[in-house]
Amino acid sequence: MSASTPTLFDSYRLGDLTLSNRIVMAPLTRNRAEAGFVPSPLAVDYYAQRASAGLIITEASQISQQGQGYQDTPGIYTEAQVAAWRKITDAVHAKGGHIVIQLWHVGRVSHTALQPDGAAPVAPSAIASGSKTFVNNAFTDTSTPRALELSEIPGIIADYRRAAANAIKAGFDGVEIHAANGYLIDQFLKDGANTRTDAYGGSIENRTRFLLEVTDAIVGEIGAARTGIRLSPVSPANGISDSHPQPLFNHVVEELEKRHLVYIHVVEGATGGPRDIAPDFSFAELRQRYTGTWMVNNGYDLDLASQAVADGKADLVAFGRPFIANPDLVERLRRNAPWNELDRDTLYGGGIKGYLDYPTLDSAA
């Protein structure tokens, strides 16, 4: 490669940050929060172990109790949660890393057992996801949601704004808006989940309204240079679907381009599954519509990631589960070394096992 060809291991300017490399740790739900949905002290070491990533995106964290969809996931809406996250951001920064928090409202992907006063989950429309959630240490069907009243939507947008403010108070370098994988914002976007007939349903412009209002609220609070967003245009995660995703997401990206977000993070294909699930969908069309930082995700290995960066198809590449089993993934990629095998039995819930005890190259030597 020529000196001008970017590589995965080059530094990268992201807003006001200088990342040490172009490798990103993707958000990964681990269900290890403590009482009050406060991040566990174990999470301090977990994230610090992975601080060699150019950027860490935390596990999705609910903006309110209503936004929770799985047991033992952390929040970012109480002072105790903010204080616990502060210990994590301090530990990552002490190791020279950068970290943003993913802001989450799951919408219909929840269970009455997790909702305030056992209420039904909320969604754009009263359409069940048909997916599973994790409650009482077991996977179970999600509860049927109720449709949000028009009068409730501003309150949820305000929750996003407060969560973003709390994130900065907790020492994060920014936030990622979770608009992917069949959760609330994605539910508003896609016509398989949104059958509203008011200003938030019907046309592409209307279905995009909630995403843009959330984005504008967060940007107004913390600035575009600290606000990223994650999209999954064709993923069927959590029972989500859309009849015409290309024009929908072309419009989404065109609108985000006007707002100069610090990055767009795109799940290519099915989340955690096949990349070629929608062969007629053009991710290149989306990329052409955005002049800012473009982050890609899903099934990347060293060769695929290196090529994407070299070809200009991506500025940053996010790796998910490989970072669980390989806290030193950056060094393993640099040396083209083997990866540890993932222990799937310890993904959700539990303690140190499968969380803090994966060996690094140096510790195994």
Rank of each mutant, 00 (worst) to 15 (best):
M25Y: 02
E205I: 00
Y77E: 13
G75P: 09
D362C: 09
A43E: 14
G239K: 05
D315V: 05
E59D: 02
D45V: 15
A33Q: 02
H178D: 11
Y348P: 11
Q66L: 15
A167Q: 03
Q66V: 13
L261I: 10
T58I: 06
V122G: 03
T144G: 11
F210M: 02
I127C: 00
G69T: 06
L212G: 07
I63M: 00
N298V: 12
R209K: 13
T7C: 04
T112Q: 15
D173G: 09
F319M: 09
K313P: 12
Y70I: 15
D315N: 02
G292M: 06
H98C: 01
A314L: 06
I204R: 05
P245L: 05
P145Q: 06
R275Q: 12
D242E: 12
L329S: 08
A270R: 11
S61Q: 04
P74I: 03
G351T: 14
Q68V: 15
N340S: 10
Y47S: 00
I229R: 13
Y263I: 15
I127W: 07
S151C: 08
A80D: 13
V262K: 04
D280I: 02
T29R: 06
L286S: 06
E285N: 13
S40L: 01
H98G: 01
D276N: 07
R289G: 00
N326A: 13
V24N: 01
A314G: 13
A126H: 04
R161C: 12
S64C: 08
N297Y: 01
G182L: 13
A80W: 15
P41I: 12
Q81S: 00
K353T: 10
T195G: 05
A128H: 13
T142E: 08
W294S: 14
S40N: 05
F283N: 08
P121T: 03
D117Q: 15
A164Y: 09
R321K: 15
R334V: 04
P247I: 03
V106Y: 06
T7R: 11
Q65M: 14
Q68A: 14
S40H: 04
M1H: 15
D301N: 03
G202Y: 00
A163T: 05
A43T: 09
D362E: 13
I222C: 13
P322A: 15
T346E: 08
P338M: 09
A60N: 12
V309K: 05
D301R: 05
K190L: 07
P6V: 01
A3G: 14
E176A: 13
E257L: 04
V214C: 11
A120T: 07
I157L: 07
L333I: 13
Y46Q: 02
N181W: 08
L256P: 10
I156F: 08
R13N: 11
R332L: 15
T291D: 07
Q307G: 10
I264H: 06
T89H: 01
A217K: 05
N238R: 12
A270Y: 08
G239P: 08
E213W: 12
D90W: 01
T291F: 07
G320A: 14
S125H: 00
A193S: 09
S64T: 02
I23D: 02
T293A: 14
A119Y: 06
D345Q: 14
I88K: 01
G272I: 12
I101S: 11
N136I: 09
G272D: 04
T197S: 00
R344D: 15
G118A: 00
